[in-house]
Structure formats: structure tokens, C-alpha cells
């Protein structure tokens, strides 16, 4: 076992990201309140908006993904997570079924862009340009749930999943204990 692997075994790393989400699920992670101190005993955060680490520093045990894939950057980040994380968790309804962003899935993409940038009642856009800078990730034809892009290992539904749901799941995963979520902790809203 290399030194690097040894270090991972010693304290597993957890990475998190928000794709096409609203950061509500991340707020719910923070809602574990003072238990975050216990969590820090168990794990170390890798790439995550919580610590603002932008790139993976190595292999992670758990990757927590909020939000579905609405654009090409979401897909790239998700694939990067799959590559670096042993276990991937879809956190929240957007990761699981696209959520609110997926409301556009029943409307052709061009119609969505036209409404947002040309025809909307409050739009002021004299040049008539739809944003097209190479810096802006291209939108996908529709919003995809994470498990339709890469293999996801677990799904935690909720909008957002409650802090207790997240806490119990993480503790079970990290301590190798079986997970029996009580009825009240699996909710779709």
C-alpha cells in the first residue's frame, strides 16, 4: 500500500458539488449543525463548495452530487466525480429527476432561449443576441438526472433531503453500518 492510499484509508475523503441545483441541498448538509464537528472527525472534505477546493486532490470515498445535468460543464464535473469517487450519491430531487430545471424538458430548447432572451415580457435586448460566448457552457437539449449520465450508487430524495437523512446516510456509509432510514426521512419534497 502506498503512502497515499494509506492516508486515504486513514481518513476517507468526501467531495461535494452542485450541478444544476440551487445549493439548497448543500444548505441541508450544513443543517447537520454541530454534528459537522463529528463529521470532520470521520472525514476530510476534498473538492467541495464548503471548503472552496476547486479540483480533486486525489481519490475520494464518497462524492455527493446535488443537481442534475443542464449543460456540458455539469456533465464534465459529474464524469470527473465518477472518476475520482468510489461511491457517488445523488443528493436531492434535482440530481434524481432533474427537479425544477427539468420543467424545461417539455419545451424545445430554442423556445426556452427565445422566451428568456427575446420574447419574455420583461426582456430588454435591443441587439437581439442570445448569449453565445465560448466561456458559457452550452445547454443540453434537456436536463438529465445524474443516473442517466453516469452510474450513481445511492439516491437520497428530498427537496432538500433533511439534515438527518444526510447525516444518517453518511454515518452508515463511513462506519460500514447497514442503513435503515425511517419512513419520515424518505420524502420527495
Amino acid at each position: 500500500m502506498t503512502k497515499e492510499q494509506n492516508r486515504i484509508m486513514a481518513k476517507p475523503k468526501v467531495a461535494t458539488t452542485s450541478l444544476a441545483g440551487c445549493f439548497g441541498c448543500h444548505m441541508s448538509i450544513l443543517d447537520i449543525d454541530e454534528r459537522i464537528l463529528q463529521l470532520i472527525e470521520l472525514i476530510e472534505f476534498d473538492k467541495s463548495p464548503i471548503n472552496d477546493i476547486k479540483e480533486f486532490t486525489g481519490e475520494c470515498l464518497v462524492g455527493i452530487v446535488e443537481g442534475g445535468c443542464a449543460n456540458e460543464e455539469n456533465v464534465r464535473v459529474l464524469q470527473d466525480f465518477r472518476k475520482h469517487c468510489k461511491i457517488l450519491i445523488s443528493l436531492g430531487d434535482c440530481a434524481i429527476n432533474g427537479g425544477l430545471p427539468a420543467m424545461r424538458n417539455t419545451i424545445p430548447l430554442k423556445e426556452c432561449l427565445d422566451e428568456a432572451y427575446l420574447n419574455g415580457p420583461s426582456v430588454y435586448n435591443p441587439s437581439g443576441q442570445i448569449p453565445n460566448d465560448p466561456e458559457i457552457p452550452l445547454l443540453l437539449d434537456k436536463v438529465y438526472p445524474c443516473h442517466e449520465v453516469v452510474k450513481m450508487d445511492y439516491h437520497l430524495p428530498g427537496c432538500p433531503p433533511s439534515a438527518d437523512t444526510i447525516w444518517q446516510t453518511l454515518v452508515a456509509l463511513l462506519t460500514d453500518a447497514p442503513l435503515e432510514l425511517p419512513y419520515e426521512l424518505i420524502k420527495y419534497d
Binding site: 445523488s90 434524481i96 429527476n97 432533474g98 427539468a102 424538458n105 417539455t106 434537456k142 438526472p145 443516473h147 442517466e148 445511492y154 439516491h155 437520497l156 430524495p157 424518505i186
Partner: peptide
């Protein structure tokens, strides 16, 4: 926790 089939939207 999540449906096993692809969403049709």
C-alpha cells in the same frame, strides 16, 4: 429512492 426507468418527460 429513485425510479429505475428513464424519465420520458
Amino acid at each position: 429512492a429513485a425510479p429505475k426507468y428513464p424519465y420520458m418527460f
